[in-house]
């Protein structure tokens, strides 16, 4: 519960471009579990705004208590219904749940219709459940950052579980679930090439396998296929965690308790085996380097930096400078990556 650590909140250094007062309100609101504050902060981070980053700076030290679950699977595998059932089960156990439901955006317009909440309406009026729909926004590199930032906010807001639901198709979506502590991969009978999809990249990230819609006639076949695949690949991964294979029917409500138990068991195992520390380090490496890459490309594209970049390019064209040195100069001039664009103005 956030009550204790809340005293650790330090007033942060003033950051131009957003009023410190408002920022503190946002942070206080999140810690007070005000849904509006949490929601607004997620928006700020989704749009990569400085006021969001500033608030996250304050909140980040308070996080690390929620268990982050990544849940992914093919379209039509019943993920949203499964997540809603899982949330119901966890709520019965007295735990709070935040859900980030990520859906692809239209490649044409960049817009999106986000409909995952339809399956989650039973939780709409429960203070112990927070649902946020996010679009991939074309997945131009920022998706995993925004999603994981949102998870940090929900963690700081005191939710016991943060479930990130994505469609397991693109690299960006797989990157998101990689940042989770427990990765659940959902398959469903009758989609045909599902197992192929698994082979193509999801299999190695799974900590728990679920075959959903187990009441379908061809469920046994899917289960058998998956079991075989897991045996071939080593049913326990290199770290010694034995990957469970659960069959669920989100509609009938079967297998959900088992899934919740296995998620908790995995969380305990992560801590006790030392795997958690390893994963957190790997996740931190991935996040920091991804954000750094983002910052560099933003800088290269920003009007303020554009002049310097262009003149360096001209030097390279004139052969007064070699490309390696030019690039190095660019990076060195942008080495202070903690500074925001606003500060430099």
């Amino acid at each position: 519960m956030p009550a204790g650590p809340r005293s650790k909140v330090m007033p942060s250094a003033s950051v131009p471009g957003s009023s410190p007062r408002e920022r503190s309100d946002l942070v206080a609101g999140v810690l007070d579990r005000k849904p509006s504050a949490t929601a607004r902060l997620i928006t700020a981070l989704e749009n990569n705004r400085e006021d969001g980053r500033a608030a996250l700076r304050e909140l980040y030290p308070l996080g690390g208590r929620a268990h982050i679950v990544g849940l992914t699977g093919a379209p039509g595998s019943g993920k949203s219904t499964l997540v809603a059932s899982l949330a119901r089960c966890l709520r019965k156990r007295g735990r709070t749940v935040a859900i980030i439901a990520v859906d692809p955006s239209s490649s044409l317009s960049g817009g999106a219709i986000l409909g995952d909440r339809i399956r989650m309406q039973e939780h709409a009026l429960d203070d112990g459940v927070f649902v946020r729909s996010m679009s991939t926004r074309g997945a131009l590199g920022g998706l995993s950052r925004a999603t994981v930032d949102a998870a940090c906010v929900l963690d700081a807001a005191g939710f016991d579980y943060v479930i990130i639901e994505t469609v397991g198709v693109g690299q960006a979506e797989i990157d998101i679930v990689r940042c989770a502590q427990t990765v659940v991969v959902v398959s469903v009978p009758g989609l045909g090439d599902d197992i192929q999809t698994l082979k193509a990249g999801l299999l190695e990230v799974a900590d728990i396998h679920v075959v959903n819609k187990a009441d379908r006639p061809d469920a046994d076949k899917t289960l058998a296929e998956l079991r075989m695949l897991l045996t071939l690949d080593g049913s326990s991964n290199s770290t010694g965690w034995r990957i469970p294979l659960i069959s669920t029917s989100a509609l009938a409500g079967s297998g959900i308790e088992e899934l919740a138990d296995d998620i908790d068991r995995h969380a305990t195992w992560l801590r006790e085996s030392g795997e958690l520390a390893r994963r957190e380090e790997a996740a931190a490496i991935a996040r920091v380097s991804a954000i750094a890459r983002d910052l560099i490309s933003t800088r290269l594209g920003s009007p303020a930096e554009r002049g310097g970049f262009v003149s360096l390019v001209h030097e390279v064209v004139d052969r007064t400078l070699d490309p390696h040195t030019a690039a190095q100069r660019l990076i060195v001039s942008g080495s202070d990556l903690t500074r925001s664009t606003e500060e430099r103005r």
Binding site: S106, S109, G110, I113, G115, A124, S133, S135
Partner: peptide, 19 residues
């Protein structure tokens, strides 16, 4: 709205004002 680049959250039929 989607085709105009907006993000649309649709919650289905029969929602209450509270929801």
């Amino acid at each position: 709205l989607r085709d105009a680049g907006m993000e649309v959250i649709y919650t289905g039929l029969h929602r209450t004002p509270e929801e």
